[in-house]
């Protein structure tokens, strides 16, 4: 019996293919902590203290530095992802919320909501390279795969600002729907997705012209339209599937990357904000702020396979590249 069971497990493991263990890092905005999760076992490894009000989180391409916006401390904290030792902090400008790393790993572009600027920080020298004036309440930050453009969304101005990373000039400003929260390029750089939380749409933008090709809208029976508030957006590396976190509707929308029609809505935890893929794109993880948990979504099956309790008010998530 035991042997049979073992062989069944072994077969299942073979069928599933070798799964690599990555570590997911979740910022808990209210708990002032970071939760580390083993994405293979889908269990919490540990929860460690962070600066005050941790929100945006990202990791260097090398996987050696973990960056965390400690919003109420007005700094970006840099951790060793292995030991979670705080290595140093970066000057971030006031109230950093979201940021994006240049694909090369340097510099870091930070949205400063209070000052209507994007701060550019050299992560090696720990110095501010530039402060770029943008619209009111800058929030979402995306970077083109070639690193030539950083796109910032301003929540009250309602624009996607295309920042030329060489000149720091705004080459294009695209008016989108109300309260744009997040900007995400496809891996081939051919499209840009910008979510509008209050407008309830995701704009599909041609980055070359800045023109809006299509606005994706959402509809879930039994959910008031106002609750369908798109925030985090992620696209599979082949560009074929787009995932959008829909805030207080407690759903993640699955969208066809070619037709831009919604294929499915997946029920996750409460007030879902940000998303991150595992590097093998087997799973996408959502942070569900009001239920203090994250959901693991099986990307191929488009199914929520696990909910896992983390710290208080989980906000952002990133998965280590190795």
């Amino acid at each position: 019996m035991l042997i049979k069971l073992l062989s069944a497990t072994a077969t299942a493991a073979l069928l599933a293919g070798p799964s690599l263990a990555y570590t997911a890092y979740v910022t808990n905005e209210r708990g002032n902590t970071i939760t580390l999760i083993d994405t293979d076992t889908m269990e919490v490894i540990k929860e460690v203290p962070s600066g005050q009000r941790p929100r945006g989180i990202t990791i260097s391409p090398s996987g050696h530095e973990l960056y965390v916006c400690a919003s109420d401390d007005d700094t970006v904290e840099v951790y060793d992802p292995k030991t979670m030792e705080l290595l140093h902090t970066l000057p971030s400008g006031p109230d950093p919320e979201l940021f994006v790393l240049h694909p090369s790993g340097n510099p870091l572009y930070i949205a400063n909501e209070d000052d209507n600027i994007v701060t550019v920080v050299d992560v090696d020298e720990h110095t501010v390279l530039a402060e770029i004036p943008v619209g009111v309440e800058p929030e979402g930050m995306g970077v083109s795969p070639d690193g030539k453009y950083v796109v910032n969304t301003s929540e009250t101005t309602n624009m996607a600002h295309f920042i030329n990373t060489e000149t720091y000039e705004l080459d294009i400003n695209t008016l989108v729907d109300s309260r744009p929260r997040f900007a995400q390029f496809t891996d081939d750089g051919s499209r840009l997705y910008v979510s509008a939380e209050i407008g309830g749409t995701v704009s599909v933008i041609d980055p070359a012209s800045g023109d809006i090709l299509k606005k994706i809208t959402f509809e879930v029976p039994g959910i008031v339209p106002e609750a369908l508030q798109p925030v985090g957006v992620r696209v599979t590396s082949d560009g074929k599937t787009v995932f959008v976190a829909l805030g207080p509707s407690n759903r993640v929308a699955v969208i066809d990357g070619d037709t831009h029609e919604v294929i499915d809505y997946l029920l996750v935890g409460q007030r879902v904000w940000q998303l991150a893929f595992t590097p093998d794109e087997k799973y996408i993880i959502s942070t569900n702020g009001n239920s203090n948990d994250v959901s693991f979504i099986d990307v191929a099956a488009r199914k929520v396979v696990k909910s896992l309790q983390v710290g208080e008010l989980p906000w952002g998530v990133v998965v280590s590249p190795e």
């Binding site: 390279l129 530039a130 004036p133 705004l170 080459d171 400003n173 800045g210 023109d211 809006i212």
Partner: peptide, 22 residues
Amino acid sequence: MRATIKGLVGAALAAVMLSAVP
């Protein structure tokens, strides 16, 4: 470097002419 960026508001205005916002 930091000081030169202050002049970017003007640059941004000029950029509008070429932008997606017609």
